[in-house]
């Protein structure tokens, strides 16, 4: 079911739409700003946006679902992005993912029940020299010990 957006969110959407509406081809930039504000681009927001920037919902959804970066559901508070680039792969990225998954009791792509953590894998964060790497809310944690990485990282962020 689609619910209406709150007045606060609507105000933000109007501000974002106003900023980009007249620039051609700015849909992806609009979606970036929306996701930065809301953590995701949910369906009700897409419906709202369609009216504000005069782009059909189908086109917005087409773009949202094509690009890995955009989420349609709100993730947990701390976003744990396990880098699965080649360098990290060779240095045990799958074990890092396993360790975090075990620690949090969730699978890749899921959020914890208390919405404190979201676990995802990403292609490459470009910190290959520090492999294996996990990015937490934009900060890099590198040179991890794959087996104990889950406990260490989660402990650092839990309750914060």
């Amino acid at each position: 079911m689609t619910t209406a957006t709150t007045p606060n969110v609507q105000e933000d959407l109007q501000r974002i739409a106003k900023k980009w509406k007249d620039k051609p081809g700015s849909l992806i930039m609009v979606l970036h700003e929306v996701q930065e504000r809301l953590g995701c681009v949910p369906r009700n927001v897409c419906l709202e946006l369609a009216k504000l920037i005069d782009v059909p919902v189908a086109r917005i959804y087409e773009v949202v679902t094509f690009y890995n970066y955009f989420k349609t559901e709100a993730p947990g508070k701390h976003i744990l992005s396990v880098c699965t680039g080649t360098a990290c792969h060779l240095k045990g990225a799958s074990k890092v993912l396993e360790s975090l998954s075990k620690e949090l009791g969730i699978k890749e792509g899921e959020s914890s029940a208390d919405k404190e953590f979201h676990l995802q894998s990403v292609r490459c964060v470009g910190c290959c020299g520090m492999a294996p790497v996990v990015m937490v809310n934009g900060a890099i944690h590198g040179k991890l010990k794959p087996e104990s990485s889950g406990k260490e990282i989660v402990a650092q962020y839990r309750g914060k």
Partner: peptide, 25 residues
């Protein structure tokens, strides 16, 4: 600046152009 959004294929020039226009890459 225009941002990518996590699609490897957008490194290909015609896909990159589509993405710069705000479309699927």
């Amino acid at each position: 600046v225009r941002l990518g959004a996590g699609a490897f294929v957008c490194g290909e020039e015609t896909a990159l152009i589509a993405s710069c226009e705000g479309k699927r890459g």
